[in-house]
Design a protein around this nucleic acid. Sequence first.
DNA 1: CGCCAGATTGATACACATCAATTCTCGTGG
DNA 2: CCACGAGAATTGATGTGTATCAATCTGGCG
Lengths: 247, 247
Amino acid sequence: MHAATSSAIKATRLPVPAALLAGRPQMPVPSHTARAGQAIAPDRLERLGTVVRHERNRTIYFEGDDVQHCFKVRSGTVRLCKMTEDGRRQIAAFLSAGDLFGWVDRDTYSFSAEAVTDVTVEKYSRRSIDDAATADPTMMHRMLAVVSEQLTSAHNHLLLLGRMTAPERIASFLIDLAKRKSASRADAGTIELHMNRKDLADYLGLTVETVSRVMSALKRKGLISFSTPECVRVTQSTALERLAMAA
Amino acid sequence: MHAATSSAIKATRLPVPAALLAGRPQMPVPSHTARAGQAIAPDRLERLGTVVRHERNRTIYFEGDDVQHCFKVRSGTVRLCKMTEDGRRQIAAFLSAGDLFGWVDRDTYSFSAEAVTDVTVEKYSRRSIDDAATADPTMMHRMLAVVSEQLTSAHNHLLLLGRMTAPERIASFLIDLAKRKSASRADAGTIELHMNRKDLADYLGLTVETVSRVMSALKRKGLISFSTPECVRVTQSTALERLAMAA
DNA sequence: CGCCAGATTGATACACATCAATTCTCGTGG
DNA sequence: CCACGAGAATTGATGTGTATCAATCTGGCG
């Protein structure tokens, strides 16, 4: 099971023009400052990374694999998840363009990374990152900021899973997603989910049926609307926020 | 509400003889390597910290407060938690001697820290830590390791809250606690909880009544035993582990 | 057109929450 | 030392939110 970690389709060695650690904060439920990162010795990081493509539902790495690489999402959506022996799954985060993952100082990954959609990621060997960090100490500082942000997201997620009702979970999720979108484009209101109901359910600690029912209920009440299951429009954001409530 | 963060009773300026970042990994649900830390420029960290006492149930800092300090538990138990407006609470972690908290690179704390029992903590100003990190780059590296470990714990906790039944949650919790104990002393089997049922419930995403019922059931089945609610003895650890199951 | 996976909707079951008494524990003062 | 009180823990009776089981519906694709 831990064998074929690489489901890569194409791997081209490429310089990294933009600052590696720049980009918006990882994971949903941010609700905090966006900390637009500034360039960290971009010259040192050029030619260190490769761009790799993974097709839909392929695993990028498995929980328990040795930490050999760090990643940055270039396009598409990635999920970080854990499974129990009997097949129950918990998704810890969905990542999209600009998000970093695997940037931890550990021996093994504590969750799997999988492609929700077709995905392109930038991939950096741990060794090259270590070198870059040695050369530029602020790099390590930025990595700490990234992991800190992820820890905050995880803590918000704990509150959601431990103490919120199904409608509250869905509402919070939609609001977070809407916030993330609006950060990039001012589309305002329309959200492309990119993931199916099972993914959503496994992120929110619910079943597909419950997710479906609550989505339908929200639609009936006029808080949201959607024609295809993957494209949701928030029509009454204040009412939705009231539903989500949690600080 | 964010006013009096300091409920400190006594504050004495003290050198820090042992390596600050040494110690066992933070939070329950580790299940991974213990990474016994090596000394990080102990000389630079001496005289940077103060020892502060907080009495039972006092808040050390509030969610949303500016991050001014980092902490290390010297004795007692600390809980990290979040509350909703209507009083629901989620505890993210319990910390005990040797554990670090507040070591993030963020502007504000994303959760409150409270004393479960009477507690003594070592307290370091952010500024002094930054200075130490500049002087010794490996320091930042160690901090990244600490936060990474916490992120892993948070992810395990997500699986527990999102996908496990009440008995599974209790069993996992007891096993983790037992592991932590055995790491320090070879007491084997006997666990001092230090926290009441409400704390336990808020950590596990359950109610006091459910926690109590499940504990009683486990006792009746002979997997555990306890005379006082706070002192639990695991009598059939393999059966308990089978109950917990999750990878 | 017909197949199939995903989504929705309905009927029912059950795990855990909620409401409501006891019972236990422990600190305090007589 | 024991009685007392108060908060915590336990236990019981009942309710309910979400899971489970089971159709049906929908949309994409060979």
